[in-house]
Design a protein around this nucleic acid. Sequence first.
DNA 1: AATTGTTTCAAACACCTGTTTTATCAGGCT
DNA 2: AGCCTGATAAAACAGGTGTTTGAAACAATT
Lengths: 212, 212
Amino acid sequence: MSVSNEKPAVEHLLHVAGEIFASKGASATVREICGEAGCSVAAINYYFGDKQQLYIRCVQTACEQKQQLFPLPKLEDGLPPDHLIRVFLRTMVSRIAGQANLSWHNTLMMREVLAPSPEIAKMLANNFRPDFELLDQLLGKLLGAKLDSDVNRRMLATQILARCMFLRTGKQLRQMLQINCEVSESPELYADSICDSILLQVRAMQMEANAC
Amino acid sequence: MSVSNEKPAVEHLLHVAGEIFASKGASATVREICGEAGCSVAAINYYFGDKQQLYIRCVQTACEQKQQLFPLPKLEDGLPPDHLIRVFLRTMVSRIAGQANLSWHNTLMMREVLAPSPEIAKMLANNFRPDFELLDQLLGKLLGAKLDSDVNRRMLATQILARCMFLRTGKQLRQMLQINCEVSESPELYADSICDSILLQVRAMQMEANAC
DNA sequence: AATTGTTTCAAACACCTGTTTTATCAGGCT
DNA sequence: AGCCTGATAAAACAGGTGTTTGAAACAATT
């Protein structure tokens, strides 16, 4: 159950606070959190200094545990680029879709991705950059020497990021418009749907390039 | 300048409050708003009843003014479906990209699309449904009788919604990862990029269907 | 058993919240 | 003039906010 080796009180408080911060944002009150956690309001200041540091540590642990739970498989250079992209996307989509009982991790992170607190922006950027650079690299391979360019890689990367984020950002919108998109219920199907559409476009670009 | 015919004080308060609500969320304080607007804190309760009704009216005016500024052109049935989709997408992307001086409209609406207040969810749903149903209809035409199906239409609609929303939801992420995607700076280019990718996929689906 | 350091709590603190009250002011009307 | 109505402001209000305090409870070690 426990992923880190913190004191039980700290871990419990992080979990409860994470859930509440995720649903109500940083304006959730310490009394609400401590009430749910079954402890006195002094506990937060005792263990974390103040409320903001608790919030930051919630985001931090969300980052760490997510990567820990859905590690990126080794991507060996020999494998074909379309396969690498597929594995990469499945991992990322799984992270974003998350597990039901840990869904606050992603909700909280998404909150910060959409409107980052100044203290957290850098942390998140450092967290995402390696994955993004790997994606950029994979797209380069997929495009091949002829088509590889900053513009093309960015175009595809933007599409991928958009559809990954939409898993979360579109949740309420789908509900409002009553679009029960079954493909978005299964991480694998959703990832494959993104992958297929990207591969299709790359193939079309290659055909067009060869025709000239 | 003024789009509605409200009392000047009301209009000014709506504009100032909209900007602040957009940047800080509903937790922005009445003192902050009235300080910026240069009036007493009693003004809000005098004109709007309470703070929440002010918030709701901000979202409401954001909806109205956005549609007013970027109306959907008449889409005549005779025109080819790919042209209709393109016009539709350009309008929608323009709305989301918005004008620089009215950017709070979209930020505020996006806030509510991502995490709607219970009182506002219905209003937004009613606001978006006609546009979404039109999109659904256009996608049906684009797919043609052979390929038209709920699954296919939803798949394409999801892609489109994802990339439209990403204009806003990806803003901070692009900044964090330092992706200065020039195509996302011009609404027309961005809309066309979405359109091209959709058309490409539909053509590929048609080819595949014909091959069988 | 005594002592140490750590944890927990209830209460108090100072400040901020949205809202209401009271009073003053300005302009239009008879 | 006097009166009335709508608008604005300053102050007061009741309740909630994060944080601190001092004491009590606990666990571990000497």
